[in-house]
C-alpha cells in the first residue's frame, strides 16, 4: 500500500446533530483530516441515494452523520437515511466495490469527541481500503 495515499471523503451531516457536533469539535480544536468535506443537510432524511453515488464517483468514501435512533427531529428521517445508505452499500457491492465505502453513524450534537473519532476512524478505514476503483478520473 502506498503510504502517502490520502483518501478523499464527503460527510453529509444532519444540521441537528452532526453539524453541531462539528462546531463543538471545532471549538475544542479537535483535529479532523484535511481531505474531508462536510455538507450540511436539514435532516439526514434529505440524503438522496443519488448524492451518495455522485459523491462516490469522485471520492473514496461517504459518511452520513444522523441523529441518534428514535431521536430524529422529524421522527423517521434517520431511519430513511439508514435505508438509503444500506441500498447504496448494496449497489456498490453488486458492482464489486467495497460496501464499507458508505456508512451511517448516529450521534448527538454534544458528542464532539465521538464525532472527531468517527470521522477519523472512517478516514482510516477508507485509507486501509485504498483508492475507490470505481472513481471517475477527471
Amino acid at each position: 500500500m502506498n503510504h502517502n495515499y490520502q483518501p478523499k471523503i464527503v460527510v453529509f451531516t444532519c444540521e441537528n446533530s452532526g453539524w453541531l457536533a462539528l462546531k463543538h469539535a471545532s471549538a475544542l480544536g479537535l483535529l479532523i483530516p484535511e481531505r474531508v468535506e462536510f455538507i450540511k443537510l436539514p435532516c439526514s432524511g434529505k440524503v438522496d441515494l443519488l448524492y451518495l453515488l455522485k459523491a462516490l464517483e469522485k471520492v473514496d468514501g461517504t459518511l452520513v452523520i444522523a441523529c441518534q435512533k428514535e431521536n430524529c427531529k422529524f421522527l423517521k428521517g434517520n431511519l430513511r437515511a439508514e435505508q438509503r445508505v444500506n441500498r447504496a452499500g448494496k449497489l456498490l457491492k453488486e458492482i464489486g466495490l467495497e460496501e464499507e465505502r458508505v456508512r451511517i453513524v448516529y450521534l448527538a450534537a454534544n458528542m464532539e469527541h465521538k464525532f472527531a473519532e468517527t470521522v477519523q476512524n472512517f478516514y482510516d478505514k477508507i485509507r486501509e481500503l485504498g483508492p475507490n476503483r470505481g472513481k471517475v478520473m477527471k
Binding site: 478523499k8 464527503v10 468535506e37 455538507i39 443537510l41 436539514p42 434529505k46 438522496d48 443519488l50 448524492y51 455522485k54 459523491a55 469522485k58 471520492v59 472513481k135 478520473m137 477527471k138
Partner: peptide
C-alpha cells in the same frame, strides 16, 4: 437544498 445546488457543490470539489 436543491439537487442542483448540492450536486454542483460536489462537482466543484477537487478529487
Amino acid at each position: 437544498y436543491t439537487d442542483d445546488q448540492i450536486l454542483a457543490q460536489l462537482e466543484a470539489m477537487e478529487v
